[in-house]
Design a protein around this nucleic acid. Structure first.
Lengths: 205, 205
DNA sequence: CGCCGCATCAGCCATTTGGCTGATTCCTGC
DNA sequence: GCAGGAATCAGCCAAATGGCTGATGCGGCG
């Protein structure tokens, strides 16, 4: 019997997953967590074979950080990421964090069940329409922005001017412009609007 | 017995809602639809008392348009909108479209059940943390942008320059700037980045 | 008909932005 | 200790942007 821990901030989704998973008799849901923190604690106690984890977990730590923590457990559960959106950056982040795979929420229940079985068996699980994208992502990896650059990018996305960003971060405008120049180069854009767009598209922010 | 039709593009969420709703014995799920189109057809046949409808329905028509069509049926079901995000514009849009209310997906199952009962009884149902916002929205209504302005706004959000927008819309840059000036005034901002931000925040785009 | 909102366009001007080159400091890893 | 990346800053310059004022044509509405 393969044991599963559910992690999702929506009670309704947890109920749905439980119903779907327990429809057969080869899988057993041994626990549910609404946050990443809760998931890490529960996984330590329950030692599930597979953790099915939403990528977005409301206010707390996200699915990727949760994955990292879960994979550090001993024994480490296989972590299967479940999400609504297919953002490139997040796919790669999840895989890099040690996730066994990645499923879109809008797939049929049986695909989820199959995915759990394959993850439990140590296989890699990728939603069909995502596999190609992940490989493409591998070939031309997403630009790696530094923490500071991400920070600037967030202010950018909130519509801040260079002057405002400078004030907020306690640096000069020259520094902000320098960061922006690097961001633009890495994202291969030439305007703040497009940088915002690309960042949102790829899930960088 | 109150009958319910579920509308959500995610099978898992439908399963969860069904489990939650049928946990008691006062509600009965009489059907499920994955798209707005499907929902309208099914509602015509099944004549449910309440339709529980996700705001975002993937590729087809959205929850608001679906609501409009459902309310035009005879007898018209009460439509309860369910969603993840609390965008002001969408709240108002749903209410204006004749929805009986609005629930966030991350609430407890019993809140959803209660909401369905109240909607069936003809009451207005608003998630507590949304009610105030809706009323505020009523007091200071969202700026009304023209269709053309919304169009320009969309291009803006995709990071287009004035020149590019002008080319795409077959107008001169002067016209684009004119539209932008109006948009900026209506949204009370002074830069394209902030306009994009506000538009996304309020669900204008 | 006259008014008004909308879309279209124009010119002027100050500010912001983005590209470039280069410099300093700090930290990390070899 | 030194190479390299990161963060910080500076100055210069061209382009894009935003604020302003004003004009035209079109369609709806009283």
């Amino acid at each position: 019997m393969t044991t599963v821990l559910l992690v999702d901030d929506h009670p309704v989704v947890r109920s749905g997953l439980r119903a779907v998973i327990e429809a057969g008799d080869a899988l057993q849901v041994v626990g549910e967590a609404a946050t990443g923190e809760e998931a890490i604690i529960l996984a330590g106690h329950l030692r599930p074979d597979v953790v099915l984890c939403d990528l977005r977990l409301g206010s707390g730590i996200d699915g990727i950080r949760t994955t990292v923590a879960l994979r550090a457990l001993d024994p480490a559960p296989a972590v299967l990421i479940l999400t609504t959106f297919d953002r490139d950056a997040e796919v790669l982040g999840a895989i890099e964090a040690g996730a066994a795979g990645y499923l879109l929420k809008d797939v049929d229940p049986e695909v989820i069940v199959q995915g759990i079985h394959r993850a439990a068996a140590g296989d890699m699980v990728l939603a069909p329409d995502l596999a190609g994208r992940v490989l493409r992502g591998m070939r031309s990896p997403l630009p790696r922005l530094t923490d500071r650059e991400i920070e600037v990018l967030r202010h950018l996305a909130r519509g801040a001017t260079n002057k405002e960003i400078a004030r907020t971060l306690f640096v000069t405008e020259a520094t902000v412009k320098s960061h922006l120049a690097h961001i633009f180069t890495k994202l291969d854009v030439d305007s703040r609007s497009r940088a915002i767009h690309v960042a949102q598209e790829t899930g960088l922010i």
